[in-house]
């Protein structure tokens, strides 16, 4: 895969980031070298080898359907960049039609 301006701009959009021209150049270089390394790995023959997703073999780590301690409204909102004491407040996410 080639890391070009189009890809960087798509990634910016997906990650909700706005990069400066300098940052874009740096990222292009970094991503290219990461991809190169991954391409190197792809030279290995992995025929018949299951991908490793879970690093241990445990399954079914479950909890029973019971209530546990919840946060108070005050604590829940405490670290938010913006809130009104009841809700988290964010820039309007949809355009309401008049």
């Amino acid at each position: 895969m080639k890391v070009d301006k189009l890809l960087i701009s798509k990634l910016e959009k997906l990650a909700r980031l706005e990069l400066s021209g300098e940052e874009r150049e740096g990222l292009t270089k970094d991503l290219s070298s990461i991809l190169e390394m991954v391409e190197k790995l792809q030279e290995l023959d992995t025929e018949g080898v299951d991908p490793l997703v879970y690093i241990n073999e445990e399954v079914n780590i479950l909890r029973s359907d019971q209530m546990d301690k919840q946060l108070s409204q005050k604590d829940a909102l405490k670290n938010a960049p913006d809130q009104d004491g009841t809700f988290f407040r964010v820039p309007k996410v949809i355009n309401l039609k008049k």
Binding site: R63, D65, Q66, M67, D68, K69, Q70, L71, S72, Q73, A76, L77, T86, F87, F88
Partner: peptide, 22 residues
């Protein structure tokens, strides 16, 4: 259910906003 999918917060409908959280 009594509690959420991945933690023990209540699932009751209609509670005061941001109180059934962890």
């Amino acid at each position: 259910t009594v509690s959420k999918a991945f933690c023990g917060d209540s699932t009751t409908f209609g509670a005061e906003p941001n109180t059934h959280v962890s």
